[in-house]
Simulated scan of single mutants.
Amino acid sequence: MKQAHHPELDEISLTAVMAALSDPIRVGLVLLLADGRERGWGELRAPVAKSTLSHHLRVLRDAGITRTRQEGTRCFVVLRRDDLETRFPGLLAPVLAAAECDGVGRQVELAASA
């Protein structure tokens, strides 16, 4: 399988990050990943088709917000918190706090068995 492209730290742009975080599903995914744990794509539940969830995960990866790792036929995703903090100090925490306060992304959750 083809290896996913992840932008280098200096390639991550503020506009790409903000555009990726403009969707409630993607914000919900980032909120779930904010605990720092790597999650299998199968653990993530959202009220969208699997192909749409895959699209959202790709948008986050392409913006430099997440890193995807493939192991056999399974894919895993983790938040690039340290990279985002290095590139845009102090950006992520208030965005996620505001999202939690407003309930943005609450429809995204972990599978019951996770």
Rank of each mutant, 00 (worst) to 15 (best):
E8W: 09
W41E: 12
L31D: 03
L60I: 01
V108K: 00
F88W: 09
E85V: 02
R106N: 14
Q3F: 06
V95N: 04
L33Y: 03
G28N: 10
E71V: 09
C101P: 01
A93G: 05
T73H: 09
A97H: 15
S113N: 11
A49C: 07
V104Y: 10
L14C: 02
R106P: 01
A34I: 03
A16M: 08
V59Q: 11
A4V: 14
I65P: 00
V108H: 04
L53S: 02
G64I: 04
A16P: 06
V17G: 05
C75I: 01
D23A: 13
A63M: 07
T73E: 09
R87C: 09
L60V: 00
A111Q: 14
I25Y: 14
R81C: 01
T15Y: 08
D62R: 11
L33S: 02
E109H: 13
L31C: 04
P89E: 14
G40M: 07
D102A: 15
D102W: 14
P7A: 08
G40I: 01
R58L: 12
G103F: 13
R69A: 13
L33T: 05
G105C: 10
A34W: 08
S113Y: 13
T73K: 12
D82C: 04
R26F: 12
C101W: 13
G72D: 07
R37M: 12
L57Q: 07
F76Q: 00
V17Y: 07
Q107P: 00
A98S: 15
V27H: 05
D35Q: 11
E100Y: 10
L29Y: 06
V78A: 14
A99L: 13
R58M: 09
R87Y: 11
V59S: 01
G42C: 07
A46I: 02
L14I: 04
P47H: 02
L21G: 00
R80P: 05
V27K: 00
E85I: 05
E71C: 03
G36M: 02
F76T: 03
W41L: 14
E43W: 12
A46M: 04
A93E: 14
L14Q: 12
D35S: 13
A97G: 11
I65S: 01
G42A: 04
R39V: 01
L60E: 03
R80H: 04
G36V: 02
D23E: 12
P89F: 12
R81V: 00
A114T: 12
R106M: 13
A19Y: 10
P89I: 10
S54C: 00
L14N: 00
L21C: 06
G40N: 14
V48H: 01
E85Y: 07
